[in-house]
């Protein structure tokens, strides 16, 4: 009796456990992007998101920290312009610096610079995904106002890119 039962017990456990192997593919959110939304300055009381200005191109500089440059030789190509279904532009963080600087090129070759500062924390996710960087104590360090009127920082901690982090009001 003991023999049969212990065998049944063992095989039962084997059966319970089969079919739960991990697949080796990373399915968790990794390092977030900076999500930028645009709003109309004339409608400050009700800052509904609008489409980003047409012909907007956003560049990082090769040096990574250039401010106010309009010399395209300094830019990393291609510029980032992809918007998602919520009219947001996603900018890629620099995981080797405690600041992020992007040059915005608007219609008519008008340039603006945005820089934010943050503290990086590298966080373990799991075996398949490894580590990701999250950004804390985010602050607006600098922005120019040639085409941009003002910028609002919506969060101080950026861990996921499901939310908007920054809102830009154009003139």
């Amino acid at each position: 009796m003991i023999k049969k039962l212990s065998l049944t017990f063992f095989l039962g456990i084997m059966l319970l456990l089969s079919g739960c192997e991990s697949t080796g593919i990373c399915t968790e959110p990794v390092t977030p992007k900076l999500m930028i939304g645009f709003s109309d300055f004339d409608n400050l009381g009700n800052p509904e998101d609008i489409d980003p200005p047409s012909d907007l191109k956003i560049y990082g500089t090769k040096d990574g920290t250039d401010i106010g440059t309009s010399n395209e030789e300094n830019f990393i190509f291609p510029g980032l312009t992809q918007t998602d279904e919520n009219k947001r532009i996603a900018l890629i963080f620099d995981v080797n610096r405690d600041s992020l600087t992007y040059i915005f090129k608007f219609e008519g070759d008008i340039f603006d610079t945005l820089r934010i500062n943050y503290i990086r924390e590298n966080r373990y996710i799991n075996k398949n995904c490894g580590y990701k960087t999250v950004f804390q104590q985010v602050e607006l360090d600098y922005y120019s106002t040639n085409a941009i009127d003002s910028i609002i920082l919506l969060t101080e901690n950026i861990e996921y890119d499901t939310e908007q982090h920054i809102k830009i009001f154009n003139k």
Partner: peptide, 11 residues
């Protein structure tokens, strides 16, 4: 941590 865009994009 790879975050491809910047020239030095790997931490």
């Amino acid at each position: 941590i790879q975050n491809g865009y910047w020239l030095d994009d790997t931490f």
